[in-house]
């Protein structure tokens, strides 16, 4: 954002020296309520072709490979069928798709999720444990965490430290006034999502690996992953789905289909307390956005987990 503003201002100063001050201010006031998704003012990560041919460049490439081909390259840490790039589109570069260049400069940071200050390595470990349902995550100084950290650092080259960037995470999509409907969500899913993710959310494989990720069931994210929250999934879907047609669904459709997807069973929350869904709900899910874990829908307890 900053370089862009600077260039605009300099450009205006050069072209219209007398009116420059006024115009620059108008320009800035227009930038403030900028809707998500406008590309021009977003941080631009570096290009692969500029990677140096040295040890650092090599590690960045290793991180890239792990990021986009996680299941195949680190199967011991991936308990489901997913790759990092399934939820972080464009190799972790795309704004509003939890880009790494916006995440990296924000750590270390306190996280309510585990009630402590997390380093970036710990944040990555969280991804492995929950989104990848990977059991014990790779150690903070493991080759995997190191390569992914270096890849993230490189993507964030020249980004300011500790400054919230536009396009970070999945920008919130407010819950519609009439809430959400799992029944309507099923309709949206059948019309828009099943063609890639399968009628049963099972994804589609080519050979041994998923070409299109499963959205529920044993090979999807577990009940502890951020994506299990309906609000988070709605935001991801609204900004990014269907692939290549982001922002084409209404907020209502995004919420409905997110609720439908997250009303299905998936691997258990690894933080399960004493085998009790209810205890786990109270401790970890009751204040975690909008989610269905531990609730009864149509007479069925959600959150029982699936192997």
């Amino acid at each position: 954002m900053k370089p862009f503003v600077l260039v605009s201002v300099v450009g205006l100063l050069m072209a219209l020296p007398i009116q420059a001050a006024t115009i620059a201010m108008e320009d800035q006031s227009q930038l403030v309520p900028r809707p998500a998704g406008q590309q021009a003012a977003l941080f631009q990560p570096p290009s692969e072709k500029d990677l140096p041919d040295n040890a650092y460049g090599k590690l960045v490439r290793q991180g890239y490979a792990l990021f986009v081909d996680t299941k195949r390259l680190a199967p011991q840490f991936v308990g489901n069928g997913l790759n990092c790039s399934n939820c972080h589109l464009d190799q972790g570069r795309l704004a509003n798709s939890a880009p790494l260049w916006a995440a990296y400069p924000m750590y270390p940071a306190y996280r309510k999720k585990n009630d402590k200050v997390n380093t970036y390595a710990e944040r990555l470990q969280g991804c492995f444990q929950f989104s990848m349902n990977g059991g014990t995550p790779p150690a903070a100084d493991s080759p995997e965490i190191t390569a992914l950290s270096v890849y993230s650092y490189w993507l964030a080259s020249k980004a300011p430290l500790g400054v919230e960037q536009p396009g970070r995470g999945y920008p919130d999509v407010a819950q519609p006034a009439q809430g959400y409907s799992i029944v309507r969500g099923a309709q949206v899913y059948g019309d828009q999502c099943a063609v890639c993710h399968g009628a049963q959310g099972q994804g589609q494989k080519v050979g041994d690996h998923y070409a299109m990720p499963p959205l529920w069931g044993k090979d999807s994210y577990n009940w502890g992953a951020g994506m299990h929250r309906i609000n988070t999934a709605a935001a991801f879907i609204k900004h990014n789905m269907p692939l290549g047609k982001g922002a084409s669904l209404s907020d209502q459709q995004a919420w409905d289909v997110a609720a439908y997807i997250n009303s299905h069973e998936r691997p258990q929350d690894p933080r399960l307390i004493e085998g009790s869904v209810e205890k786990t709900r109270v401790k970890f899910h009751a204040n975690d956005g909008v989610n269905l874990y531990g609730q009864t829908v149509e007479g069925v307890l959600i959150g029982q987990g699936i192997r």
């Binding site: 986009v68 195949r72 390259l73 790759n83 790039s85």
Partner: peptide
């Protein structure tokens, strides 16, 4: 096979 990890 061309794996995802291959850089263009």
């Amino acid at each position: 096979p061309v794996y995802r990890s291959e850089m263009p």
